[in-house]
Amino acid sequence: MNTEWPLWEIFIRGQHGMSHRHVGSLHAPDAEMAIKNARDVYTRRNEGVSIWVVEANNISASSPSDKGPLYEPSESKVYRHPTFFDIPEEVGAM
C-alpha cells in the first residue's frame, strides 16, 4: 500500500489582474489540505491573493522526446510574431 500523500502542483496569483503562476509542488492528503499547505509554504511573504492546487497525476504533459515535431516547425516562421506592426505608445505594455 502506498502510504505517501499525493503530490500537488501549486499555482498562485500574485495580484488581481495577473494570471496564476506555477510556483512549485507539495504533498497533502487532499485538496483542502493542499491549499492550506500551499498557504503556509508559498505565501508566507505575502506573495499571493489566490491559490489553485491540482493533483500532479491529473496533469498531462508533453513528452520531451517529441520536441522536434512539436516545436521545431515554428522556429522558421517569424511572420507569426506580431513584431511587424508599429504599436501606438498609448497602448502601453503588451
Binding site: 500523500w5 507539495l26 504533498h27 497533502a28 492550506k36 499547505n37 503556509d40 509554504v41 508566507r44
Partner: peptide, 11 residues
C-alpha cells in the same frame, strides 16, 4: 513528520 507540517507549525 513532513516538510509541509514543519513549515506550518513554524508559522
Amino acid at each position: 513528520p513532513v516538510l509541509e507540517e514543519d513549515i506550518a507549525l513554524a508559522n
